[in-house]
Design a protein around this nucleic acid. Structure first.
Length: 277
DNA sequence: ACCCAGGAAATTC
DNA sequence: GAATTTCATGGG
């Protein structure tokens, strides 16, 4: 990969295994917006970026030289997804089908607190409404960066709110879960730096101390916010897929990169609803 | 009007 | 302990 920088534009050449639509709109992140020219605008680390992909080059508008490592990390550009897809494809026929269907999916490394709150909101909810609630949360309680783009409100800010304050985002019964998470993070009772040093099981149990965080949401926080690629979130789609397509196999079957396998299967299943009639 | 949604807590069996 | 119900809101 060659990296170039000029005039608030970073570009990464020789990009493989990345499709922006598949990656930014496959249910792992909720804030990216597609523009008319098929670029995408969103917020990483409280900064607005516009990304687009052309001739295997990823262009990032709004980026300074010092943002390069941030962007590489966010899009997971140092991991060889081709090799992972090859290995997963050898394991199971359906996994080969699913990973070939959307080979441009990558697991983003999102901000852990944003991932935590986003997936608390996701429970018993549909993706389009999840996006609306998160947008409202940012517009009401984040800070405007520019042009209608907002920061995701931090733990201190959210912890200072009452349930009534928060009721404007229409998250319903999830409001008190959001506040409990914000309080535990703002007081460092839950500390992402410490969690990252724990074993997978220990980190997961700690996350489940938050009201409204169970197995599935904890797995999502670990996978999308902390880049623990062995996490395997089991939502309604994955349960259906495991039951119908994988004969109820144990998630450990998928190995070290189970979380990536999970994302291929989740996306494939949502795009092939007829498999589950 | 109806059923469902990237679930988890509360209640009941 | 395992199975069922409830939770708030709106998408389709």
């Amino acid at each position: 990969m060659d990296i170039n920088y000029k005039n608030k534009m970073v570009s990464f050449s020789k990009i493989k295994d990345l499709d922006l639509e598949e990656t930014l709109n496959c249910g792992q992140a909720f804030r990216w917006e597609r523009n008319e020219d098929n670029s995408y605008s969103g917020v990483i680390d409280n900064k607005v970026f516009t990304v687009y992909l052309e001739n295997k080059t990823l262009y990032v508008k709004g980026a300074l030289k010092k943002d390069i490592s941030l962007l590489k990390e966010y899009f997971d550009l140092d991991l060889d997804y081709s090799k992972i897809r090859r290995d997963l494809s050898k394991k199971h026929k359906v996994l080969k089908e699913a990973s070939t269907y959307a080979p441009g999916i990558r697991i983003l490394k999102q901000d852990p607190f944003e991932a935590m709150i986003s997936f608390i909101i996701s429970q018993n909810n549909n993706i389009s409404r999840i996006k609306k609630i998160i947008k409202s949360l940012c517009e009401n309680f984040g800070e405007e960066i520019k042009d209608g783009y907002y920061t995701f409100p931090g733990p201190q800010k959210l912890a200072s709110l009452s349930e009534e304050d928060l009721s404007v985002i229409k998250a319903g019964f999830r409001n008190r879960y959001i506040l409990d998470a914000a309080k535990k993070v703002s007081t460092k009772e839950i500390d992402f730096n410490k969690l990252s040093k724990l074993s997978f099981g220990e980190a997961k149990e700690k996350l489940k101390e938050i009201k409204g965080v169970g197995d599935k949401v904890a797995d999502c926080i670990l996978l999308y916010g902390m880049h623990r690629l062995d996490a395997f979130p089991m939502d309604v789609w994955m349960k259906r897929a495991m039951n119908v397509l994988f004969d109820d196999m144990d998630p450990s079957y998928f190995g070290k990169y189970a979380g990536i396998a999970q994302q291929y299967i989740f996306h494939y299943s949502r795009k092939h609803k007829e498999l589950f009639d």
